[in-house]
C-alpha cells in the first residue's frame, strides 16, 4: 500500500577528497514519500553501485536523530528545511513532486570535507577534551542523592546537554561559529552543582581551543538556534559570555 512515488531532481556535491575541488552532480530519483531522505540516498547509492559507479559518501548512523553523525545542507538548511530534526528524520513527504533539491556538505574551514558530503568535525572533540568534563575518578563518587539538584536546574542543564554535536550550528552560522555547541556544553556542566568547582577554568580553556581551530565568532544572528535539531537556545551563548568575562576579570586562577 505504498503511496505514489515522487520524482525529484537532486543536485549533489561530489568532491573526491579534501584537496580537490568539488562540484554538483545531477541525479534523477523516484522515491516513496514515506522514505526518509537518507533512505532515498541509500536507494540512489544502490543504483550507482549496481552500475559500478562510486556511491555518494555521506555519514549517518543511528537514524533516530540522536547520534549526530548525519548532517547535510539541504536547500540551504542544515538538516533540511524542517525545524528541530536531524537529516535522518527528514522524510520525503515534505517535498513536492518535481522539486529540485540541492544537497551540500556542512561548510566551514574548521570542518574540512573528507569526501563528497562527509566532513571532519573532530574540532568539536578537541574543544571537549579541553575541559568539557567534571573531574571525578571512577569509584570516588558520593551517594547520588547526597547532592540535591533543583528540578529546574537539572531541567535547564538537560536542555543544554541535549546537544548531539552534529555541527549544524556551525554549518548554519554565516560566520561558521561554534559558539552554540561550546556554550551548550559549558552550560550543561555550569548549571549543575557538580560542575561548579571547574566552572571558570573550563570556560577559559574551551574557548581558547575553540578560537585556535578557526571557527568564526558569534554575531548574534541566531541562525544556529533556528537550525539546531535539538532546539538548543542561544541563552547558552549569553551564559558562556557572562562566565567568560567573569572568569577573565575576577577569577584568580592563572592565565590559560
Amino acid at each position: 500500500m505504498e503511496a505514489k512515488k515522487l520524482n525529484l531532481k537532486l543536485k549533489i556535491w561530489r568532491q573526491k577528497n579534501s584537496n580537490s575541488v568539488g562540484s554538483f552532480v545531477d541525479y534523477d530519483v523516484q522515491v516513496s514519500p514515506d522514505a526518509s531522505f537518507l533512505e532515498m540516498l541509500d536507494e540512489l547509492n544502490n543504483r550507482l553501485e549496481a552500475n559500478n559507479e562510486e556511491p555518494i559518501v555521506f555519514e549517518s548512523d543511528c537514524r533516530e536523530g540522536i547520534c549526530g553523525t548525519c548532517g547535510l545542507v539541504i536547500n540551504g538548511h542544515p538538516h533540511g528545511p524542517l525545524p528541530k530534526i536531524a537529516t535522518c528524520q527528514l522524510h520525503m513527504r515534505n517535498f513536492k513532486d518535481g522539486e529540485t533539491i540541492w544537497v551540500e556538505p556542512f561548510r566551514a574551514k574548521a570542518f574540512p570535507v573528507i569526501k563528497d558530503l562527509m566532513v571532519d568535525r573532530s574540532g568539536f572533540d578537541k574543544i571537549l577534551q579541553a575541559g568539557g568534563y567534571i573531574s571525578v575518578n571512577t569509584g570516588g563518587a558520593p551517594d547520588a542523592n547526597s547532592i540535591p539538584v533543583p528540578k529546574d536546574a537539572a531541567s535547564e542543564a538537560f536542555d543544554a546537554a541535549a546537544c548531539i554535536g552534529c555541527g549544524a550550528c556551525v554549518a548554519a552560522c554565516k560566520n561558521a561559529s561554534a559558539m552554540l555547541f561550546v556554550s551548550a556544553k559549558i552550560s550543561h556542566l555550569g548549571l549543575l552543582p557538580q560542575g561548579q568547582p571547574e566552572r571558570y577554568i573550563r570556560v577559559q580553556r574551551m574557548i581558547k581551543v575553540m578560537d585556535e581551530l578557526g571557527f568564526g565568532s558569534c554575531t548574534n544572528t541566531y541562525a544556529c538556534e533556528a537550525e539546531c535539531p535539538k532546539g538548543i537556545s542561544v541563552t547558552n551563548i549569553a551564559r558562556m559570555n557572562r562566565d567568560y568575562v567573569r572568569a577573565k576579570f575576577t577569577s584568580k586562577i592563572a592565565e590559560v
Binding site: Y133, I134, V136, T138, G139, G140, A141, P142, D143, A144, I147, V149, P150, K151, A154, S155, A157, F158, A161, H188, L189, L192, Q194, G195
Partner: peptide
C-alpha cells in the same frame, strides 16, 4: 553515583 558526579542530568 558515578554518573551523577559526572554531571548526568537525571530526572529529579
Amino acid at each position: 553515583d558515578q554518573c551523577v558526579a559526572q554531571g548526568v542530568p537525571f530526572a529529579r
